[in-house]
């Protein structure tokens, strides 16, 4: 059903990234990462903390220029995709402009992209994530969990083709997290954006994704690229399905293996 050609996927080839330390040495974070995911698919990324997941996302979105290798988003360079406002990003540390209301903050990408009905879209998304009553409030008046939902609304407001979520739901309690995951799945099924999501929750990673990437310790590479075959939409009852639990275990074992390599 899906057309697969060289131009309809997100691919990274031999991506490496090294940070320049102040001592002059360089610290290799990513090592020859090559991956290809289908356009419109959902990719979860798990890995030991500090392994370079965030760096990988920044490189794929073009916010960091890789030291080596290249990335193509449906044939486009990430820089061009950004300039065409095709990217939505939720950063690990919530970024909000304190002098703008939640609505104005959420609206920002739509304004930058020149989306015509931006205000309506922003209000709709805020409503959907349970923040309808907080649109006129300012960021410091909201809790961390509320801000992470507003950040998700902002990442989706300009209807981007590529969405990057860097531990977007960290500040949410479990129940809310599942609820937001379901909403995200709904929106994703509707819009079919290509999503990359970093998460610490393996069960969340498996529940949402078409494929899960397990990263190794630094300098990291993709240790395991596991396709998740369950059909969509996935009901919450899947969380108790035997096959699902087996997959979660498999990924947990792979993740544990990266930790033992550490010593």
């Amino acid at each position: 059903m899906k057309v697969t050609s060289a131009n309809s996927n997100v691919s990274a080839s031999q991506l490496s990234y090294a940070y320049k330390l102040t001592t002059g040495e360089s610290l290799a974070v990513l090592q020859d990462i090559s991956l290809t995911v289908e356009r419109g698919s959902f990719t979860s990324i798990v890995g030991p903390s500090g392994c370079g997941k965030t760096t990988l996302l920044l490189c794929i979105s073009g916010l960091l220029a890789p030291t080596k290798g290249s990335v193509a988003l449906d044939g486009l360079s990430p820089t061009i995709a950004r300039e065409q406002h095709k990217i939505g990003y939720v950063f690990q540390k919530p970024v909000f402009f304190e002098w703008l209301s939640i609505l104005e903050n959420t609206l920002l990408p739509a304004k930058v992209a020149g989306v015509a009905n931006g205000v309506d879209r922003a209000r709709l998304l805020l409503d959907r994530f349970g923040l309808g009553g907080f649109a006129e409030r300012y960021p410091h008046e909201l809790s961390g969990g509320m801000l992470s939902r507003a950040a998700l609304a902002r990442a989706l407001v300009h209807d981007p083709e590529y969405v990057f979520l860097d531990e977007a739901f960290n500040h949410l309690d479990e129940a809310l997290r599942e609820q937001i995951n379901e909403m995200l799945q709904e929106i994703w099924l509707d819009r079919k954006m290509t999503v990359f999501a970093i998460t610490h929750s393996i069960s969340e990673a498996v529940f949402l994704a078409d494929q899960v990437l397990v990263m190794s310790q630094k300098p990291s590479f993709v240790q395991l690229h596991r396709n998740i075959p369950f059909e969509r939409p996935r009901p919450r009852s899947l969380l108790r399905d035997q096959r699902y639990l087996e997959l979660v275990d498999e990924i947990r074992d792979a993740l544990k293996a990266t930790h033992t390599n550490e010593t």
């Binding site: 990003y89 970024v95 930058v112």
Partner: peptide
Amino acid sequence: RDGMFLLQSIGASQWQIFKSL
């Protein structure tokens, strides 16, 4: 820098970055 990353991620122009950040 975080605000800068945010604006760059949504493809803001230099002028937009000046105005909004």
